[in-house]
Design a protein around this nucleic acid. Structure first.
Lengths: 209, 209
DNA sequence: ATATTTATGGAGTAGCTACTCCATAAATAT
DNA sequence: ATATTTATGGAGTAGCTACTCCATAAATAT
């Protein structure tokens, strides 16, 4: 079954759309990233996307569906630094050092809003938005999973002791990561975030010089 | 000049109010703490406060004014653990250890919403709410100031070296503190937060065993 | 050619959100 | 007693928010 909006151009039936769906989604994602779900109004979203209400609903279904797609666009776009920083070789601690530096850079990148679209969403809203909160919690959990996997790799490679509490280390770095998103929102600059990251690495298990 | 609502009972003119203003504010504060500013609707607020719109506006002025008062009620109530944990005697590191444990307890206290009313507010909203964001940023800055003051005391007492970068240490612990609020919101329990706090203390400047 | 499918334009709207208005109540000041 | 002040009850509302509806356009399928 073809998924709407993903059909191949050569087989598309009906009137072809007059806008670039991917570009429109990217623009919407940046508004959500900046203002959150509730803070992004429908009128502002369709304005930056250059769409009429009809075209919007035809292509995206609802504001909530758009948000979920925008999360995907964030993860594969601006949020891509996270898996990328962890994925490189070397000892696990080096990977986490890269992650801290990449986070400091990404959270203060001038081309996008400060901080992280994922870290700050679905934390503080009405009880009838439980599905949304659950979704964001699940997405946040993915980064913890990535960290745990990288730490397990470190244990296998011998750069972490056999009995290392990888879940605990991941919990700690996720906490720092979420905290950095808050600090970036409040205006902390890249250098400040980098120093915080360096200090967090001092908590790495093992003897410090 | 008498501030409205704070006049002494013996001199109050006009019809006396039929409700307990402090208790109503406390109830509203807990709704804001749970749902944030936007997530708390006017109808829900006046319902938990037990007020009609007229009585509400007469006593509190506006939703935003209520929120600002609620922040004050949070800081002197549930948020009071922060200055209290820091204020105790002993080395600065002990004070920060108490702060981490008290934070883990406060953020998972069952009588109130998980996490922190201050850490999560004004981070993700519409651009026309800049005043609100600035207010929350300022309130968050106060906890950093408290930490810096306690660290300076530690330098004076000799439990931190003379040239210790107290601003940097405060930045780091504020980041952990904000991150813990996010983790608590996502359901992390007290023990998990305590372990994160213990690990954060491992980043304390100095030689680790 | 005609039916079918999908996209667009643009006017319109139910429901909610924070708030207002006004008559009335209940206190103090003189 | 009367004026003044403050609180309350309860109906009402401007403006916004996400969304709908319907006529029309532009493609493919047969």
């Amino acid at each position: 079954m073809m998924i709407k909006g993903e059909g191949q151009a050569s087989k598309a039936r009906g009137r072809p759309r007059l806008f670039d769906r991917t570009a429109a989604l990217d623009r919407a994602m940046r508004v959500f990233w900046d203002r959150g779900y509730e803070g992004a109004t429908f009128d502002e979203l369709i304005a930056v996307m250059g769409l009429s209400p009809s075209s919007f609903y035809n292509a995206f279904g609802s504001k909530e569906a758009l948000y979920r797609e925008a999360v995907g666009a964030y993860l594969t776009g601006p949020g891509g630094f996270f898996p990328k920083a962890l994925a490189g070789g070397g000892p696990a601690k080096d990977a986490f050092a890269r992650l801290m530096m990449a986070t400091a850079a990404a959270y203060t990148e001038e081309v996008g809003p400060a901080g992280c679209m994922i870290s700050l969403a679905g934390l503080h809203d009405a009880p009838d938005r439980a599905d949304f909160r659950d979704f964001m919690r699940e997405v946040r959990g993915r980064s913890r999973t990535l960290m745990i996997e990288r730490l397990d790799e470190g244990v296998r490679n011998g750069d972490l002791p056999e009995g290392a509490d990888v879940a605990q280390i991941a919990e700690f770095f996720e906490t720092v990561f979420r905290g950095l998103a808050v600090r970036a929102r409040d205006g902390a600059d890249r250098e400040t975030l980098e120093k915080i990251g360096v200090m967090a690495l001092d908590a790495w298990p093992g003897v410090r010089a």
